[in-house]
């Protein structure tokens, strides 16, 4: 909602590809194929902005996030962060960067070590990265972070299993903030939470963005949460971005048939609206990324597909200023 602070992108992703080899055989591993998890992705994120990344399971959202975090070394492409290409950086050069880009995971259960106290979980990265060498100051900082994230500072002495899902997710957020990051990859941060708790965490993420001038890449399934939180949104399908626009254009006038199908599938919490709607869900499932369809990869499921779509892969085009669509039938 707030306008991006600067027009110079903080992050520019260009031609990003992440191909994983598929192997067979246990003793003598043979490479029998390739999963093109991310296959030519371009986008930018401005400082202070929240960029949404949506799409069905397996379309490459997490892999894109992992490349930006450099948990994966991309097969090809550039990831320019604040003027430097992280895609090609070596381990030594990356060390300084790791602190600036943090992550919040989906699963607040498995992402916290069950044998560590909450205080230790939050303090550990500060210690490991030498951000706060003094133990006393570290503890004070832990308490400050806990209350920043809406938790009682006494929770520092608890274990993860003594907390609810929403509380654990707040701990995950506090841990990411401990590094004083600029950029946070939020990978489905509210998907595992109860509906009643999701709104609390969404509000917290918004407050923190404003307070600390954070920039988010927000990966999510729930399109209504994405619309609420993001200034811009990219829709992925089988490793590529099929549509990208500012959130208002994307949700008010979606152009790509896949985006329309995704939006149509979301039920509205209002029985009167739902009963009045003529609803036919998109058919079929996402094809295997090991063996993607020819031409436009969406053609087997696309209600608008014509013969040409089977042969020709549509290139992304800027149809209106800032609104990019990869479909040749959209004019």
């Amino acid at each position: 909602m707030s306008e991006p602070v600067s027009t110079e992108p903080l992050l520019t992703v260009r031609g990003l590809r992440m191909h994983f080899p598929v192997t067979e055989g246990i003793i003598r591993r043979r490479v029998t194929g390739e999963v093109k998890a991310v296959d030519g992705v371009d986008f930018t994120v401005a400082r202070g902005e929240t960029m949404g990344l949506v799409g069905e399971s397996g379309c490459g959202k997490t892999t894109t996030g992992r490349c930006i975090l450099r948990l994966e070394k991309p097969t090809a492409g550039d990831i320019i962060y604040d003027g430097q290409n992280i895609a090609t950086m070596d381990t030594a050069a990356l060390r300084g960067f790791r602190q600036r880009i943090q992550v919040i995971f989906q699963d607040p259960y498995s992402s916290l070590n069950p044998r560590m106290k909450i205080g230790e979980i939050i303090a550990e990265p500060m210690y490991v990265h030498g951000i706060e060498p003094d133990a006393g100051k570290r503890n004070a900082r832990v308490k400050e972070l806990l209350s920043e994230c809406g938790l009682n500072p006494n929770f520092a002495d608890r274990y993860p299993h003594e907390m609810s899902g929403g509380q654990r997710q707040r701990v995950g957020i506090a841990r990411a903030l401990a590094m004083n990051p600029e950029f946070i990859v939020c990978d489905e941060p509210v998907s595992a939470l109860d509906v009643s708790i999701q709104a609390q965490v969404v509000n917290l993420l918004e407050d923190l963005r404003e307070k600390f001038g954070l920039t988010y890449l927000f990966i999510a399934h729930d399109l209504s949460v994405v619309r609420h939180l993001c200034q811009r949104v990219a829709v992925m399908y089988l490793g590529r971005i099929v549509e990208m626009a500012d959130a208002d254009s994307l949700f008010d006038s979606p152009l790509h048939p896949y985006t329309r199908a995704l939006l149509a599938a979301v039920p509205t919490p209002d029985p009167t609206v739902e009963r009045g709607r003529d609803f036919r869900p998109v058919q079929g499932e996402v094809p295997s990324p090991m063996n993607p369809p020819s031409g436009c990869v969406f053609h087997p499921r696309c209600p608008m597909a014509v013969e040409r779509c089977k042969q020709q892969r549509p290139e992304p085009r800027e149809i209106r200023p800032g609104h990019i669509v990869a479909c040749d039938e959209v004019r």
């Binding site: 009643s196 709104a199 509205t268 209002d270």
Partner: peptide, 22 residues
């Protein structure tokens, strides 16, 4: 019902959560 953002309504400035813990 109030806590969920809705695609069929204008974007709210802020979500209105169920406060507190289960």
């Amino acid at each position: 019902l109030r806590s969920v953002p809705r695609l069929d309504r204008p974007r709210q400035a802020r979500l209105d959560p169920v406060e507190g813990q289960p």
